[in-house]
C-alpha cells in the first residue's frame, strides 16, 4: 500500500486509469440503462416505473459505498498516516453525495405513481436524507480545514464517527419497518426475476466504474491543487 504513498507513482497510474474507468463506466452504464429501458418487460405490479430502479438501486449502493470509502480512507489516514488517504477521502465525498442525491431524487419520482406521494417518512428514506446531510457536513468541514490550514485528520475523525450511520441505514429497514419494502436482494438468494437482475447488475458495475473514475479524477485535481500551491509558495520564497 505504501508503494503508492508517492504521489508521482500514483499519478502515473491514475493518468491512464482515470479515462479507462470513466470510459468503460459510461459504456457499461449506457448499455445497462438501454437494456433496462427497452429490453426488460414491464413489471407485473409496478409497470414501467420499475425501470427507474436501474438507476435508483445502484445509486443507493454507491451512496452508502461512498461513505464506506470515506471511512476506510479516514481509518488508513489516522492509523498509517498515508498521505494519499486524505485526498482519497475528500475525493470520494462529492460523488458519494451526488449518488445519494440521485438515489433520493429517483426514489421520489418512483414513489409518486407507486405510493401516490413524493415523500414518505420511512426509515430508509429518512436515513438516506441524513446520509446526504452527513455528506454536506463532511464536505463543508473538509473545505474549512483546507481553508484554515488545520490538520487534515479532523475531517477523518468526523468521517469515522459518521460511519456509525451507515449500519444504522442498513438496520433501519428492520427498525422502522413501514411503507418501504424489505430488502429484495440478499446474499445467496434473490426475490427479483433474473430478467431484472442482470441489467441491474450491469448498471451497478457501470456506475461503480464511473464512481471510481470520478474519484481518481478528483484525486488528480486535488493533488494538482496542492502542487500548484507549493510551486506558488516556492516562487514567492525566491522572489
Amino acid at each position: 500500500m505504501h508503494g503508492f504513498a508517492n504521489p508521482t507513482r500514483f499519478l502515473k497510474l491514475a493518468r491512464w486509469l482515470t479515462p479507462l474507468l470513466l470510459g468503460s463506466g459510461l459504456v457499461v452504464a449506457a448499455i445497462a440503462l438501454a437494456w433496462g429501458l427497452f429490453a426488460v418487460p414491464p413489471d407485473r405490479l409496478m409497470g414501467d416505473t420499475v425501470r427507474i430502479l436501474f438507476i435508483h438501486v445502484p445509486a443507493a449502493w454507491l451512496g452508502m459505498g461512498g461513505w464506506t470509502a470515506i471511512a476506510i480512507a479516514s481509518l488508513v489516514e489516522l492509523v498509517w498516516r498515508h498521505p494519499l488517504a486524505t485526498v482519497a477521502a475528500r475525493a470520494a465525498a462529492v460523488p458519494g453525495a451526488g449518488f445519494t442525491a440521485i438515489c433520493l431524487l429517483t426514489g421520489s419520482i418512483w414513489a409518486r405513481p407507486t405510493w401516490g406521494t413524493w415523500w414518505v417518512w420511512d426509515g430508509r428514506l429518512t436515513s438516506f436524507l441524513v446520509l446526504l446531510f452527513l455528506y454536506f457536513a463532511y464536505i463543508a468541514l473538509a473545505g474549512a480545514v483546507e481553508r484554515d490550514g488545520a490538520s487534515s485528520r479532523i475531517p477523518a475523525i468526523f468521517g469515522l464517527v459518521g460511519a456509525v450511520n451507515v449500519p444504522i441505514i442498513n438496520r433501519s429497514v428492520v427498525w422502522w419497518n413501514s411503507l418501504h419494502q424489505p430488502p429484495s436482494i440478499t446474499i445467496g438468494k434473490s426475490a427479483i426475476d433474473p430478467a431484472f437482475l442482470w441489467p441491474l447488475l450491469a448498471a451497478t458495475i457501470g456506475f461503480s466504474l464511473l464512481f471510481g473514475g470520478i474519484v481518481l479524477a478528483r484525486m488528480r485535481m486535488l493533488l494538482a491543487d496542492i502542487q500548484a500551491e507549493a510551486r506558488l509558495r516556492r516562487k514567492a520564497m525566491e522572489a
Binding site: 446531510f133 454536506f136 463543508a140 474549512a144 484554515d148 488545520a150 490538520s151 459518521g162
Partner: peptide, 22 residues
Amino acid sequence: LTASLRSGAALAGLLLIPLAVP
C-alpha cells in the same frame, strides 16, 4: 473538531444536526 477552525462556529450546527438525528 471545530475548535481549531476560524469558521468553526458556523460549521458546528451543520455538523451536529445529522449526528443528532437518531
